[in-house]
Simulated scan of single mutants.
Amino acid sequence: MKFVIAPDSFKGSLTAKEVSLAIKKGIMKIYPAAKMELVPMADGGEGTVQALTEATKGKFVQEQVTDPLGKQVTASYGLLGNSQTAVIEMSAASGLQFVDENTHDPLKTTTYGMGQLILSALNYGVNKIILGLGGSATNDGGAGMAQALGAKLLDVQGAELPFGGGALDQLDKIDVRELDPRIKDVEILIASDVTNPLTGENGASAIFGPQKGATPAMITQLDRNLTHYAEIIARDLGITIKDVPGGGAAGGLGAGLLAFTNAKMERGIDLVVEYSELKKRAQDADFVFTGEGSIDHQTKFGKTPYGVALATKSVAPTAPVIVLAGNVGDQIESLYHVDSIDAVFSTPSGAKPLKRAIADSAHDIEQVAENIARLIKVI
């Protein structure tokens, strides 16, 4: 009997690896001799670095970088086992965890530190970077990232622009003569399921600005500034980014990467499936267990359980795909079909306060996995 265990993290509770181990522990109470293939997963957001680095037996790298507010912090990223690919979560250097309700200011926050992580990866000689864009505290269109890589963003007096999307209206010229030449030889795969453009009513500022502290007046200012930024990029670099789907990801960082690097957009879960070698490891599986903290009808739009189901069914079509979730939402019946998810189980053991539910999550996941294994044994 072969079980493939490939869950995402239960955000705020357990990492994907911890969820995997809890499921394994529950199953092994009933099937102690079964083969267990653990493949902790992610969808390009939080947990992607850990999932891919561990899956490929790579290593973690720590660097001193600039956080969104200009302070020095320690951030980490992963080098995959092939030593040729880095995996970076932009939030490690430029995420919401570095600001609070008193310090968040999308007019000033910068992606400079994220650019420093890219430079660090270049120093290791990588030829590919997988870059997750979730959890951004910034709205600068990747301007800080470009500055870290050596691009000069100059005002009419020829002075370098200060950090933040609030300064982009002062942009008069972009000079890329000192852009790190190594960046041209590195393929950057942007792991993001966001399809919003850089500007407009569905753009970075309007849709994602409020969660970063932007007031209505700030949103108008930031959107106008990003529009100007895109116009200067089109004029000086010959690259059109204003309406590209996904350009609005991470406060416009998606557009900045397309403008200043050799980047292309990819679905996050597809990248994780590929680089974790999930399909190879799922061959001959009898059962597949996956999961995430919360599941509903939106899970089919790029979330981990649905991606795991599609990937494993393509190589092990008779293996049932079983999802464990901390919260089961609406319309999950839309997830069920022959090539996808077969069953969904809620993991909490009864109604309880959130703090208690988080504390009990590993035990509850283990218990549900054991009960499912018991059911498998008798049918």
Results as ranks from 00 to 15, higher is better:
M114D: 05
I130V: 10
A42M: 11
N102I: 01
G45C: 12
G135F: 12
S76G: 06
G144V: 08
Y77W: 03
D100M: 05
N82S: 07
G134V: 02
K128L: 07
T66V: 15
G78I: 13
P106Q: 01
T56L: 07
G142R: 00
G44A: 12
T111Q: 12
Q84Y: 10
V65N: 15
N102V: 01
L133N: 01
V61S: 06
K57R: 08
L38P: 15
N102A: 05
E89S: 07
Q50W: 09
N82R: 00
L133C: 08
L96C: 01
G115L: 07
Q116H: 08
L119M: 14
V73W: 11
G134Q: 00
P40T: 12
A93F: 03
T110G: 07
D100W: 02
A51W: 07
E63W: 04
A33G: 14
I88P: 12
G70W: 04
L149P: 10
T110S: 14
Q72V: 14
G45A: 10
Q72P: 11
L38S: 15
I129D: 08
Q147G: 13
G144S: 11
L107G: 02
K35N: 15
T48H: 08
Q97D: 00
L117T: 02
G141E: 03
G70R: 13
A75R: 02
L80G: 08
G70Y: 08
M90A: 08
P40R: 10
D100L: 02
V61M: 02
S120F: 05
T85E: 00
D43C: 05
S94V: 12
P68K: 05
A75S: 10
Q64N: 11
V87P: 03
L133S: 05
D43V: 06
T74R: 03
T56C: 08
N123P: 07
I129A: 04
G47V: 09
A93G: 05
V39I: 15
L38I: 15
N139V: 06
N82L: 06
D100Q: 06
A146S: 04
S76W: 01
N127L: 04
Q62T: 14
E46S: 10
D105V: 00
L119V: 03
A92R: 01
L131V: 14
L38A: 15
L119F: 05
E89A: 05
P68G: 11
A151I: 06
Y112G: 04
M90L: 04
K152E: 10
G144E: 12
S91E: 05
T53N: 06
S136I: 02
S83Q: 14
A42D: 14
I130C: 03
N82H: 02
N139R: 03
K152T: 12
